[in-house]
Structure formats: structure tokens, C-alpha cells
Design a protein around this nucleic acid. Structure first.
Lengths: 230, 230
DNA sequence: CAAAAAAGAGAGCACCGCTCTTGCTTCGGA
DNA sequence: TCCGAAGCAAGAGCGGTGCTCTCTTTTTTG
């Protein structure tokens, strides 16, 4: 299908990849705000208008980078999960949390791009949704495994939240009980609150030993989703 | 001092205020990325270069707006705190959390400006620090009051975090025990994770009843800082 | 082989932040 | 009171941006 086409099609893929690579380099160096189509073209030795044959607008280029960033952090989370597959659930949870944090510290501009404020006018195209879900799936998987295994502990859902619990979380977490799904989504958001605050300088004169602090907070998050004490 | 100066000084203050107001309107309408010095000048009927007499650069204008935004959300939190001054600590905590969330939903671009990714090359000037601390003080106050009153419940700090606890959190929270300070900072960051995810669309196909979900999560945050169950 | 599709190059438009120079108005000290 | 200094608005201009349009060349396809 996509292979063994004309040399022109392969050239197109190569140019597209080169554009993304140069753009990614600029993004990592200067941030999304400074990413310039003209500068990318300059770096590749072409004229700016030629770039529009590959990406119809700057935002489309940015969208491609967003998807790549989601995939990158998702892959980092999956690698961490697989590396500690035999550890007890709380340890696995914490390991994945730390992997996400490490990825964020290593790729601050990419992190800002996907979990910070939407950059241009905003808009998150539908195409980013599956990539965005990848990290979440890792956390869901850990909780689901714990649920099927030794079970979850210490979770409860107040009465007024009961009827909401089911339809609060989409069907992707249908195989975990509603109280766990609710706690999971909250923990998921809170994890990125911790990472974002550290990354964007909100902890600057507040938290000294951020590594220790984060591990402690991640452990409490694990408790919060019923994984027990690590 | 600042009053009864020459008419020129007052005129300067008025023009400065008008610039900030127009800029704030643009920010609220289009977001920080679209905020243009030239458009602000156009709206005020002056030429763009004249604006540089009042703000030496676009980033300085943005910094002024950042400080205002911090003050605005801080004031909203303080108002909520004062409105429920006689309620038990968990209820006060939740009320302030909801006030911050309401403010964020009402001022999404301002929220993105201060708690989203740093906009330009970045840089958070020192002048923003006191304004930024204002919201945090409200939360600290609630926990401190609870500590002096019926006391905190259910908090513990693992042994390996003990020595960190004291120097992890700056002196502004010196009058709460270290385990509470650690939990407080974590809850603070996590609160903004919840709000940010909702605001920036991360909950789009995930959380349905966000109001109920948030109140539930805020309640668990209150438990996490030792305020007990609301 | 000729028509069609794709790709690159260049000029140009409207916008941006920012600087510099030029006049005009207001203020403060001799 | 007057006059120089300081503050202020205006305009032109520089280099940068995203994006569109036209034109030419190259490659694919019927």
C-alpha cells in the first residue's frame, strides 16, 4: 500500500519527516511560541511557501508535533510499566508517575505543548484524542490489574455521587468499578498538576527536594486510587 | 505621596490604566498569544510607538496583566473564605476550591496566563511572586486554623521524608506541622491540575458531570490535608 | 507521448514587536 | 517670569511572521 510507491511518494514522506524533525528541534530549543514556519524552511534550505505543500498551516504542523509528543510520553510510561511489571501495584504506579515526570523534565516545551495552555487560538483536533489517551491507559491498566488481583482497598463513593459515577467516566474505564474510575481520573489530573507546578516554576521558593516530594505525593496518589500503601 | 501630583502624573496613571484595561479585554477575548500592542494602541486611538512610554515591551504589559490576574483569583478566594468563615474547615476548603474553579471557568485566558505554560520565552519576574502567593495563603490559613482548633487528623509523614519536611516548604508555612505543609503543597498543586484539565479540554470525553466531580475531588483533597471528611 | 498532477521558487500582502527621529506640551528651577 | 529639561505623541522604518498567488519545472499517469 504505502510502500513501493513511486519515488515521489517516498520523497514526500522524507521531506515531511525532515520538516517535523526540524520543527521539533525548534520547539525543544525555543518553545511553541517561537516555532516559525519560515525558520524551519530556512533550516531545510527551502522557501517558506514550499512548506505549505506539506502542512497547510502552522497549526497543522503544531498538531503533528502534539501527536508525536503524546506518543512520546505514552511510550515512556509504557516502558516504565513494562520495566516493573512484576512489582506490586503501588510500586508500579509510582514508577510510571516518575517516568512521566522524568519525561516532562526532559521535554519541557513538549510537555507545555500538550498539557499546558492551548497555544494558538486553541483547538485540539480530534486526531489527537487517541494519542492523548495512551498515557491514561497505562494508569488504567495498573488499577485494573490490581482490581482483578488482590483487589482495591479503601475506596468509597458518597451517595450523592453514586448515580454520577457511572456516566462520569467514559466507557474506556468500564472494567473498573465507578468509585475507582472517579478516583483514577482525579489522580490522573492531580499528577499533572504536580508535574506542571514543578515544571512551570510554581514550586520555586516552596519545594526544595522535589524528587522526594514527588515520590511521596505519587505514593499518596496511589493510595487514593485504592492501590494501598507502597 | 502619589496623590495631588501634577496633572500630568494623573494623566499618566489614567492612560496606563486604560492600556491595561484594553489589553485585558483583548486577553479575555483572544488569549495571550493574540494580544497585540498595536491592536491595543489602535483601540485607544494612539500610535503603537506611544505605548512604549508606558510599557517598555509587550512582555512587561503581560507581566502587569499576570499580577492583576493573580490578584483577581486571590481576591476571589478570599471572598469565598470570608463568606463561609463560620463553616467547619472541610466546608471552607471546598468553598475556596470551588471559588478558584469558578474564577478559572470565568476567566480561562487569565487562568492560562498564570497557571498554564509560560507564554513568551517564559520568565516569571520577581514582582509577580507576592501576588502569586495570595491564593496559597488562603489555603494555608484554613489548614492553620484547623490545626489550632480541633486539630488535624490522619496525617503522617514517612520516615525518609521526615528530614525533608521542614526544609521542603518555605517559611511561610512555618506555623503548620511539616506533614501538613507537605500535604498542603501537594493538594495545592493537585487542585490546579484538576482545574487545568477541565479548562483545557482534557476531560472532554471523560468527565460528564464536572461540577459534582470537582466537589468530590476537592473533598478528598481536604481529607488529604487532614481536615477530615466534609 | 501528451496531459495532468505535484513540487519548488519568488513576489507580495497584512500583520507583528520594536527603534529612532521629529516636533509639541508641560514642568521645574534660576 | 522665562527657559531649558523632561515627558509625550506621531511617523517612518527595520526585520520578522503566517499565508496566498502566480509561474516554472519535474514527475506521474492515462
Amino acid at each position: 500500500m504505502t510502500t513501493a510507491q513511486g519515488a515521489r511518494a517516498r520523497a514526500r514522506q522524507e521531506v515531511t519527516a525532515a520538516i517535523k524533525e526540524a520543527a521539533r528541534r525548534q520547539l525543544a530549543a525555543e518553545g511553541a511560541a517561537k516555532l516559525s514556519l519560515r525558520a524551519v524552511a530556512r533550516e531545510l534550505g527551502m522557501v517558506s511557501s514550499a512548506l505549505y505543500r506539506y502542512f497547510p498551516s502552522r497549526d497543522d504542523l503544531l498538531t503533528a508535533l502534539i501527536i508525536d509528543a503524546y506518543d512520546s510520553v505514552g511510550e515512556a510510561a509504557e516502558r516504565a510499566r513494562d520495566a516493573v511489571a512484576d512489582a506490586p501495584p503501588p510500586a508500579r504506579w509510582i514508577a510510571v508517575c516518575e517516568a512521566v515526570r522524568d519525561w516532562a523534565l526532559a521535554h519541557p516545551h513538549e510537555y507545555a505543548l500538550i498539557y499546558g495552555s492551548p497555544v494558538p487560538g486553541y483547538s485540539a483536533p480530534e486526531t489527537t484524542v487517541p494519542a492523548a489517551a495512551r498515557v491514561g491507559m497505562v494508569f488504567i491498566g495498573i488499577v485494573r490489574d490490581a482490581h482483578e488481583g488482590p483487589g482495591l482497598s479503601g475506596l468509597s463513593l458518597p451517595a450523592d455521587l453514586r448515580p454520577e459515577g457511572a456516566r462520569m467516566v467514559a466507557d474506556f474505564a468500564a472494567d473498573v468499578p465507578p468509585e475507582a474510575a472517579v478516583a483514577l481520573v482525579a489522580a490522573w489530573a492531580q499528577l499533572f498538576g504536580l508535574i506542571g507546578f514543578e515544571l512551570f516554576g510554581q514550586f520555586n521558593r516552596v519545594v526544595e527536594d522535589r524528587e522526594t516530594f514527588f515520590r511521596h505525593a505519587a505514593g499518596r496518589l496511589a493510595e487514593g486510587v485504592g492501590l494501598g500503601r507502597g
